[in-house]
């Protein structure tokens, strides 16, 4: 069954069209990689799925688990299982990661009609998931992303994903800025969370990530459209030839 269905999606910002008819279907359990040159709309697509309202959707629809995504607020989408790992995670001074995650989990639970997670259980979950991405214990008690290095911010995204165990994860260049070890850690974090029920969209510039997280499909988003879809070998071909030949 398809989890996410994007049909003929057009979106613009300040009158400039960025997405020019994107079609994409993702089934449960699949991993899709989206590649493409800088500034061609990858992050735009990710943000629109997550619900950012700075873009105007001018045409098309997105169906998620049978629901019209545009009927749901940002936080409702999160509670329905959509997670965006940000290309540029945001710093929030004065809000600790623990408080941030506790609020997020409990508000998602509230949406589902569940009681708040007992504190002990929450603490245990934190401990467990911190290990998955090898997140420094000291970092967890600090303000969200404040003063984190680029790599630490990316690890923190995966940590949050592990805490929230989403149904659809969209990881926007989570591999950028990671050293080889961190890349392995992040990839094994993602792989650990893979299951027939959850799907992942990996936005990346490097085929290297796909050695660690093997995708079912590779798409090329070029000038606001998906111009090519292929197996993982497509990534290798792109690395070799660049994008111009697709024009």
């Amino acid at each position: 069954m398809s989890l996410l269905e994007i049909k003929n999606l057009h979106a613009s910002i300040n009158g400039k069209e960025i997405l020019k008819g994107v079609d994409l279907t993702i089934n449960k359990g699949e991993v899709h990689a989206i590649m493409g040159p800088n500034g061609n709309g990858k992050s735009t697509l990710a943000s629109i799925i997550a619900g950012r309202d700075t873009f105007d959707v001018t045409q098309g629809e997105i169906i998620y688990e049978g629901k019209n995504l545009f009927d749901l607020s940002v936080e409702q989408r999160a509670a329905e299982g959509i997670f965006l790992g940000f290309q540029y995670p945001v710093e929030i001074p004065g809000v600790s990661i623990a408080n941030f995650m506790k609020t997020a989990i409990n508000e998602q639970r509230k949406y589902k009609g569940l009681d708040p997670m007992p504190s002990m259980e929450f603490m245990k979950l934190m401990e467990k998931q911190k290990k998955i991405v090898d997140l420094d214990t000291k970092l967890a008690s600090r303000s969200v992303n404040e003063g984190f290095s680029g790599g630490e911010k990316k690890k923190n995204e995966i940590f949050q994903m592990a805490m929230l165990h989403p149904t659809l994860s969209i990881l926007d260049e989570t591999d950028s800025g990671l050293d080889i070890d961190a890349l392995r850690v992040v990839a094994s974090g993602v792989n650990a969370l893979r299951s027939p029920e959850v799907s992942t969209i990996l936005i990346t510039h490097y085929q290297r990530l796909l050695d660690y997280i093997v995708p079912d499909f590779v798409h090329v988003l070029f000038e606001g459209k998906i111009v090519r879809t292929g197996p993982r070998e497509l990534a290798l071909e792109l690395e070799e030839k660049g994008y111009e030949w697709l024009r």
């Binding site: 940002v74 936080e75 989408r77 999160a78 929030i92 001074p93 809000v95 941030f100 995650m101 609020t103």
Partner: peptide
């Protein structure tokens, strides 16, 4: 901060709670 608001809401935190957390901080 609107990007902080979006970031928090994208984790499932309601708009009102996100505002509260930011103001409190």
């Amino acid at each position: 901060d609107q990007s902080a608001m979006f970031y928090m809401r994208s984790r499932g935190i309601s708009e009102r709670s996100a505002k509260m957390l930011l103001m409190f901080a």
